[in-house]
Design a protein around this nucleic acid. Structure first.
Lengths: 189, 189
DNA sequence: GTAGGATACGGAGAGGGCCCCCGGTTCTGC
DNA sequence: GCAGAACCGGGGGCCCTCTCCGTATCCTAC
């Protein structure tokens, strides 16, 4: 909870930020399996430096995309203010789905965010996404447009599953809307 | 299409079968990522032998589970003869889903079977599953219980996605039925 | 401006996985 | 039995992950 006791040293901060840039590119390009040593090399640092800043692949993935996740979460509130509850949720899921298919690393991140018993389930990204989804889900349920027997995590998990399914098709952008539409149909109250 | 030009040498056949046994165990235990060298070692053969019989991980996975896949496909016809078209499809998906969650390697196999542009899409397993699903899907569509704008591959892909989603939960067996039920709801005509 | 300690760097190396290759062995047809 | 085809095995190249510690860099206090 405390702010950092001490500011980062200037060189450390430079490396940290350079790593994030390179990592975001690498994950987007090669998926979540991108070589970490390669990321370190491309960032012009030793692999030790990478692992010191980001002890696990998860940590790096999360740090690289945390702003994007927050943007998506913020979008939930915007949509909630513009559309009726049910439609807001649907539209948000579509936008989330679009993000998941465009940026490969994001799908992995969502996956670990909704994995029960994973250490990643307790991270900032996971919490942010879950609570954004929960707001929309609860509103939709109260408005009566959404089944009562599902919760936000169920829906995020299913969205992740649908995104996975889409990755196996080659239709790209179109497919995610189609598949999500089917899912949404099943979720209707 | 031709039968093998020549029977396998006796030692080759022994190794082949021993590898299949061990592989099925290993995939079920460690998922599709199980170490191939380790499988070779446990089967008491060199890794060269493994790679000669099964040039790719896919090939081994498929060979290890082909009989299970065929059993599932056969089950489709049984169900088609016992239940109304819509229900037969639903029940079959539930059984397929149960298989996918119980045997970890199967999920990976289904995944590659429905991946467009994958070499695995042309394999025996893929064809068997697709055509079994297609029979049920077409019957259900003709009976009017299923949307017209989806095909068997869509449904298999989504089932794979749902199984992936379930793997992230910890509820195990119960969840797959729940999640599939939602999907099925969305597929109804 | 500089000395000194705290902080961070970097890349070698251990460990493990994948997969190919080829010298040696084992089986089969005659 | 014997020749030769068929097959075996595991060593080795390559890539990846992750750790460790001697060295370089930065910050601070004077």
């Amino acid at each position: 909870m405390m702010a950092q006791v001490r500011a980062m040293r200037a060189d450390a901060r430079r490396n940290y930020e350079r790593l994030l840039e390179v990592a975001a590119e690498a994950f987007a390009e090669h998926g979540e399996g991108a070589s970490l040593d390669d990321i370190a090399k491309r960032a012009g640092v030793g692999s030790g430096t990478l692992y010191r800043h980001f002890p696990t692949r998860q940590a790096l993935l999360e740090a690289a995309y945390v702003d994007r996740i927050e943007a998506i979460a913020a979008r939930a509130d915007t949509l909630a203010g513009q559309l009726p509850p049910g439609e807001a949720l649907v539209e948000w899921l579509n936008e989330l789905g679009a993000g998941l298919t465009q940026v490969r690393g994001l799908r992995a991140l969502l996956g670990s965010a909704v994995t029960e018993g994973s250490s990643a389930a307790a991270t900032v990204c996971a919490g942010t996404l879950r609570s954004a989804a929960a707001r929309l889900v609860e509103a939709a349920q109260q408005a009566g447009g959404l089944r009562q027997d599902v919760d936000a995590v169920d829906i995020l998990r299913l969205t992740h599953g649908v995104a996975t399914a889409v990755e196996l098709a080659d239709g790209e952008g179109q497919q995610i809307r189609r598949y999500l539409a089917l899912l949404v149909e099943g979720l209707r109250a």
